[in-house]
Simulated scan of single mutants.
Amino acid sequence: MSKARPVRGATRNHASARFNLPQTEADGDWLDARADIDGEPARLKTTVTVEHPRTIISRNTSPDIGFDRSINPYRGCEHGCIYCFARPSHAYHDLSPGLDFESRLFAKPDAAALLRTELSKPGYLVAPMALGTNTDPYQPIETDWRITRGVIEVLAETDHPLGITTKSDRVVRDLNLLAPMAAKGLVSVTLSITSLDPKIAATLEPRAPTPERRLTAVRRLADAGIPVNVSIAPVIPAITDHEIEHLVARAAEAGAQRVFFLPVRLPWEVAPLFRAWLDAHFPDRAGKVMATIQSLRGGRDNDAGFFTRMQGQGPWADLIRTRIAIACRKHDINHERVPLRRDLFRPPRGPQGELF
């Protein structure tokens, strides 16, 4: 059985089998030797590599996602959420979706400049930009790199609509940008809260802010007039599903306008990482958890089909939907979502435009 590393989510660092990469164990011979001597896995340091992409806006045509464009200031995510469906993307860098994903990060410091260029192109058609769709824009390295803030500054300057999803209370650092955007109907924020139990959260999402800090962020955003939602994402059977009603109640108390959920997804390399995590932290119920997940996913670890991948299927998925709907009615939330405005957008001014 793989041992959990201090404040890391994954217990393994196997490379992807999809690209014929060499199999690697937990971050190198030196660390493994340390573990043999000390009896416990050594801590991993986070490293950041600068990346210079040519464009920054990613596009998608998925019919079950409510946006067609997004920006990811970072690759990899130090929050270390074991269930993160973005983990397989690290395999494209010849890195492991396991420990590498949460400790070997990539930053895009040119993001704001690239965005300014793309928004200036003739014929650009405005639609809400999504931040936080792959890796978290407010993960710990944002404190120093401030790439997300630079992106928001450009969007605020151009009155471009924006939707943010994060697990971090660091989002309140940018209230001075987000509140004026919200007053114009240009922004909404979603805080993802998986569990209220600090011990469960510490193993599921080891470097994400605590659930209470996230709820405090919900309150601060709401008090600033920013439409804020709570995403119970993911719901994990036999681990967090018993908290649904309490989570909805706390979200409503904090000022959330809407609460929604996503059942746990285990694409590609995430499934074996999740199974190893279960064996390390919840060996008493690992079989039950996986059996229930498979009942949600048509008998498989994962269902990649449009629509069902986001909602799940079968009696368990129906039960979760019903429980959340009842709890939301009880607390008078989940009102109709107000669309973000698109009519205020104006392209960025270049250096020449500022002379007139």
Rank of each mutant, 00 (worst) to 15 (best):
P227G: 12
E253A: 10
T166N: 06
P206T: 07
G150E: 10
V187F: 14
I232F: 10
D197R: 06
A179D: 02
A208S: 11
I232Q: 03
D174V: 11
A252W: 02
P234I: 05
R149V: 01
E142Y: 06
I232R: 14
T166M: 13
Q257H: 12
I200V: 14
I152P: 02
V270R: 00
Q139G: 05
I147H: 15
I244H: 07
K199I: 03
L175W: 00
D241T: 05
D174S: 08
R220G: 05
L162H: 01
P272N: 08
D144A: 15
I239Y: 06
D241W: 09
T135D: 14
N229W: 15
L204R: 12
P227K: 05
E212F: 02
L266T: 03
A208E: 05
V187G: 01
V171W: 03
P180G: 04
V235G: 04
W268P: 01
P206N: 15
R214E: 14
A183M: 04
L155A: 12
V187S: 06
A252T: 06
L196Q: 01
E153Q: 15
A217V: 01
P180V: 00
I152D: 08
I152Y: 07
L178W: 01
L247F: 03
R173V: 12
R170V: 00
I147L: 15
S168F: 06
I232L: 14
D136E: 11
F261K: 04
T135C: 13
R265V: 15
L175H: 03
E253N: 13
V248G: 01
L262K: 10
L177G: 12
P180M: 02
K167W: 01
T158R: 07
N229F: 13
I200G: 07
A254I: 05
P198G: 09
R220F: 02
V235E: 03
L175I: 02
R207K: 15
V270I: 08
A252K: 01
L221G: 00
K199P: 00
L155G: 03
P227V: 12
R146N: 15
R219G: 00
R265N: 03
T165D: 05
E243D: 09
A256P: 11
P263S: 08
V230M: 11
T203F: 11
H160R: 00
P211K: 09
F274Y: 14
Y138A: 03
E243A: 07
I232H: 07
I141G: 01
T194Y: 02
P206A: 14
K199A: 04
A224R: 05
A182S: 06
I193L: 14
G185A: 12
N176S: 08
I236A: 02
T210C: 11
P272S: 09
P209S: 14
R146D: 15
T194E: 14
T210V: 09
W145R: 10
A217R: 00
E205S: 12
L196K: 05
L273H: 06
G225N: 06
T203W: 09
I152G: 05
I147A: 13
I193S: 11
I226Q: 03
D159Q: 08
V218S: 01
W145I: 13
F260Q: 09
L186D: 00
P137D: 15
I226G: 03
T194L: 03
L162D: 00
S195A: 12
I236H: 02
E212A: 08
T148K: 10
I244P: 04
P137Q: 09
T194S: 14
A224K: 07
I193R: 04
